Amino acid sequence: MRELRWASEEGDGIEHLAFDARADGFAAESAVVGQRYGNAYGLHYAVRVDAQWRTTYAWLKIVGGGELELYGDGNGHWSDGHGVVLDAIEGCVDIDIAATPFTNTLPIRRLQLAEGERRPISVAYISTPDLQVTRVEQAYSCLALNREYRYEGIFRDFTADMQVDQDGLVIDYPTLFRRLPLAR
């Protein structure tokens, strides 16, 4: 199991993530304290992906607020915690939780891009702190294999070049997040 932290470059936020490989894929659990649009929030989330890095489960809970549970089959079919099919995100394999750089790891690992390759994708975007789920268009490009990737938020006209470590976890996401050293 690995543990790491990121600081928000937009405000006073911080995240602590535990990331673990399992026989059937990977799991992450995290606590985020942040602010968005001037509103402070606390978020606890858990994400599971299969061995091909396809998201199969996500649970998010805002401290003192809403909760969201998503189940995916890895092929773009989703339902909520009550079994209701979510047609609006049909075809999305990845999720993108607005409050964390962790969910960038999911398409970076899943897509297995060759250096110089770019691929547009549709993702289930989860805004915070309201936990609204919408389908958005993004793209990822491999700038330096296993070291640097470009994220394009096509839906909001935003681009950033992210440095990642050997596990595809973000080290630096300019203007949004930067990895912190763990206390020793």
Rank of each mutant, 00 (worst) to 15 (best):
A124R: 08
R135A: 09
I126W: 10
L131G: 02
P120W: 01
L143C: 05
M162A: 12
Y125N: 10
V164K: 01
E152D: 14
N146W: 07
N146L: 08
M162D: 06
R150N: 04
R150E: 12
D161K: 01
V136M: 07
I126T: 08
R119M: 10
V133H: 01
I154R: 15
A114C: 05
R135Q: 12
E115K: 04
A124Y: 06
A124N: 06
C142P: 01
L111I: 06
Y125E: 09
I121D: 02
S122L: 14
E152Y: 06
R150F: 03
V164S: 01
Y125Q: 08
R110M: 09
G153W: 09
R118T: 15
C142F: 07
I126V: 14
T159H: 06
I154L: 15
C142G: 04
T128Y: 12
A160C: 02
I121R: 04
G153R: 13
P120Y: 05
E137T: 02
S141K: 11
I126F: 10
G116Y: 07
V136I: 14
I154V: 15
A139V: 06
A114H: 03
P120R: 03
T128V: 15
E152L: 06
I121C: 03
E137N: 08
R119A: 06
L131M: 07
R156T: 07
L143V: 15
I154E: 12
V133K: 01
R119S: 04
Q163K: 14
T134E: 11
L143R: 11
Q132F: 14
G116I: 11
V164L: 03
Q163H: 10
V123S: 05
I108H: 01
E137S: 09
A139Y: 05
D157G: 05
R147D: 10
Q138P: 02
S141C: 11
F155P: 04
Q138E: 13
Y140S: 01
V133L: 02
E115L: 04
L145D: 10
Y149W: 13
A160V: 10
A139K: 04
T134C: 03
T128F: 08
R110Q: 10
V164C: 00
L131C: 03
A160D: 01
G116H: 09
F158A: 13
V164E: 01
A114Y: 03
Q163T: 15
M162E: 13
M162N: 12
R118I: 11
P129N: 15
R110S: 04
A139I: 09
Q138I: 07
I121P: 02
Y125G: 04
Y151M: 04
D161G: 00
C142N: 08
R110V: 06
E148C: 09
D165E: 12
F155V: 11
Q132S: 12
R156A: 14
F158T: 13
F158D: 12
G153H: 08
I108Y: 02
T159C: 07
G116L: 10
E152I: 03
I121E: 05
Q132R: 15
S122E: 15
P120C: 04
R109N: 09
F158S: 07
Q138Y: 05
L145P: 00
L131P: 00
L131N: 07
Y151I: 04
R156S: 14
D130F: 09
D130K: 13
V133M: 01
N146T: 09
D165I: 13
T128I: 14
E148K: 13
A124I: 05
D157T: 14
N146C: 05
R135E: 08
V164W: 00
R109W: 05
D165W: 14
S141Y: 04
A160G: 00
E115P: 00
E115D: 08
